[in-house]
């Protein structure tokens, strides 16, 4: 230990380095894992500078508790809740299913996977909530249980407006930002999109 300062400086230099790595992370989960690195190095620095109590607090509160709580918080907040009908939600296909029904189911699955693909770029998760019929679905949207609803368009409406077969499903969002994100990639969504402002109860688009 002829020159104890040198290694001390070296260890202390690790702290801003890991803090910089933490700041440049984009994905929230990756940032939380890097926060683990930062916490470990901060503990090391505090301990070798002689502050054992601070180091212990950093390890227990700052690293352990904060990261676990933040993972749970990020997981439950970065989610897009989409209400769907129960008939669409059932994944297993019966043997006595008509070809039209099967096409419809395939379309629904395609829509859902497209949604997942789009919102994954924004690190969001898709959570599907199933409701019994269309009235319950709209009630859930009104009461802000879900961020958006996705349901098949009625047959008679389809005949009246002479829609092509592609747009069998209608999707309504009550969050403007989500509507913007999805409608930016409108070409590969394969559903009708609309945005409704719940507060004034006025439908746009």
């Amino acid at each position: 230990m002829n020159n104890p300062d040198f290694s001390l400086y070296l260890i202390t230099a690790l702290l801003p380095l890991s803090a910089f790595l933490l700041v440049i992370q984009v994905n929230p989960f990756h940032a939380l894992v890097i926060r683990g690195i930062l916490g470990a190095i901060a503990t090391l620095v505090y301990a070798i500078l002689g502050a054992g109590d601070v180091a212990l607090t950093e390890a227990l509160m700052g690293t352990l508790l904060a990261i676990t709580l933040y993972v749970i918080a990020v997981r439950s907040s970065l989610v897009m809740k989409l209400g769907v009908l129960e008939t669409d939600f059932q994944k297993e296909t019966q043997a006595s299913i008509s070809t039209e029904e099967k096409e419809k189911k395939d379309l629904f699955l395609l829509i859902i996977s497209n949604f997942k693909k789009i919102i994954r770029k924004y690190y969001l998760r898709l959570e599907l909530l199933s409701y019994k019929d269309i009235n319950n679905l709209e009630k859930a949207l009104q009461e802000k249980e879900v961020h958006g609803i996705c349901f098949p368009i009625n047959n008679n409406i389809k005949n009246n407006e002479n829609l092509d077969n592609k747009n069998l499903y209608e999707t309504i969002f009550r969050i403007e930002r989500l509507y913007e994100i999805i409608s930016q990639e409108n070409s590969n969504v394969e559903t009708n999109l609309s945005y409704v402002n719940i507060k004034q109860n006025k439908e746009e688009n």
């Binding site: 503990t43 054992g52 212990l56 390890a59």
Partner: peptide, 9 residues
């Protein structure tokens, strides 16, 4: 003191 902190961590 620091040794105890190290073991706990």
């Amino acid at each position: 003191m620091i040794a105890i902190v190290g073991v706990i961590i």
